[in-house]
């Protein structure tokens, strides 16, 4: 499974990169979302991928098939943080479009070259 997951992550990364290299800001945001999915999966990969394993204990503290719970907690944090970032990015995107009227990243050069 690691191989499949690795390929999936690779594809997500590639697609994200490709979208980041587009000129549209919407695609940029989508690219970032894709790459953050991919990084979450990288973390998930670290949990060992036990099929049908759970991160729960029974009432008496015993367990059946345990997966590594720590990466799960990390991913949860990362998902939530990613959500916050994406929301902010979208707000930024919206405001940017409202003020400049453009979605084209190549247009925003004025703060760089003098």
């Amino acid at each position: 499974m690691e191989l499949i997951l690795a390929i999936l992550i690779g594809v997500l990364f590639a697609a994200g990169t490709y979208l980041l290299l587009r000129r549209s800001i919407v695609k940029l945001v989508m690219g970032i979302v894709l790459i953050s999915y991919a990084t979450n999966l990288i973390l998930f990969n670290a949990s060992g991928l036990v099929q049908n394993g759970l991160a729960f204990l029974n009432k008496d503290g015993s367990y059946d098939k345990m997966t590594d719970p720590l990466p799960q907690a990390l991913i949860l944090t990362a998902i939530v943080i990613g959500f916050g970032l994406t929301a902010f990015l979208l707000a930024l995107k919206y405001k940017f479009f409202k003020i400049t009227g453009t979605d084209d990243l190549d247009q925003l050069k004025e703060t760089d070259a003098s």
Binding site: L5, L41, F44, S47, L49, V50, Q51, N52, G53, L54, A55, K65, T67, Q72, I75, L76, I79
Partner: peptide, 11 residues
């Protein structure tokens, strides 16, 4: 779905 199949329901 992938999370689900590998036991990460909360996720």
């Amino acid at each position: 779905l992938l999370f689900m199949t590998y036991g990460a329901i909360d996720l």
